[in-house]
Design a protein around this nucleic acid. Sequence first.
DNA 1: CGTCGAAGCGGACCACCGGTCCGTATCGTA
DNA 2: TACGATACGGACCGGTGGTCCGCTTCGACG
Lengths: 203, 203
Amino acid sequence: MVAERRPRKDATRNRAAVLTAADALFAQCQSPEDVTMADIAAAAGVGKGTLFRAFGDRTGLIRTLYEARLEPIRNAVEEGPPPLGPAAPPIQRVPALLDAVLCFKLDNRHLALALEGAGSDSPYRTEHYERWHTLLRDLLNLIPGLIESDFTAHALLAATRADLVEYLADEKRVPREEMREQLANFTATILGTSARRGVAAED
Amino acid sequence: MVAERRPRKDATRNRAAVLTAADALFAQCQSPEDVTMADIAAAAGVGKGTLFRAFGDRTGLIRTLYEARLEPIRNAVEEGPPPLGPAAPPIQRVPALLDAVLCFKLDNRHLALALEGAGSDSPYRTEHYERWHTLLRDLLNLIPGLIESDFTAHALLAATRADLVEYLADEKRVPREEMREQLANFTATILGTSARRGVAAED
DNA sequence: CGTCGAAGCGGACCACCGGTCCGTATCGTA
DNA sequence: TACGATACGGACCGGTGGTCCGCTTCGACG
């Protein structure tokens, strides 16, 4: 009945400090695992208790960070201009969407890695995966000639898994643009817009 | 110079006991994380030290188990009859291979999950992933009209990731046969052997 | 079969991590 | 200024992977 009580000033300040510190730490370290909660608390200049009260647990913190970073893209997808936005025809929007996801994972490897490899929780049982998947599936459904959009959507998203992206970028030294093009071609093949075989696909 | 000294009898016996016990425990429990090393040692009737001397660390144990289970399939692929074996034409062998991988992951969810989600170590920097990937890539290269076999091979394998498979099977209740067919159709689309669009693809 | 060095054993022990708890400090309001 | 509610922080806890070392067992050799 009563309105939500506004949080205290120091609480919000600390919350922001923690997010900033955590972001920096994750960006610096190789493996997300060697950033401990204590490290983050120390870097933010707060106690560990504060950390857990603000975000619940480790996963909560990481997810908050992740979704903050994701928000611009989410906006661009939900209400931005084509080819990402809703006005774009599916045949263009699907590749644009996957490209956006890929770029996001490239730019935020550490976070994505931390979230997807967060031990116990499957990356699939998260709200934002559900969102991406549903959107993608619905778009695929609008493209004539495609079947099993549900599984296809999963498979396409699987091609942008954070650890795969990290492996290709860091270990195999695949340049960013090359990777984007490979994913684009892969997507095109599935959508039937591929130029392979040298026949059809034009005019 | 000297030949490798053969391990003592009790050592090999214990090693086997540990593998058996670990296999059983992983099969029983939901999440691989709630099988601890101490649990395994206790179930096998040995001390924890034995466990670590035999396998190095947790990942080593799991990998040993995993590869033991994988061996039949590996054999079938390397020297078995078509469509899995080397005699099969690539256009048939690729789908057969992916189907085999999928079935393996379905049958050994717990192990695959334990290995792929083994925290620090990327599932991509393992020897057996390299094997699967190389084989698949080379096969794709033999199929005319396909480009970027390297990335495509990664993407196809990503569609059989253990956590995705587990999610679809356990959470979404997708029946085994349905999943196999979905993957088969997905593969067919990429290989250009798909029947979608109702045109071509026959005769 | 008895001896004896070495390989193997086991479980107490360690470092460390995520997460909790509660006495204390701070905020915001009257 | 006074005071209740809110938030703070770091000592503390349970539990995990991994180590260590005194003791046991193996098996080769005489």
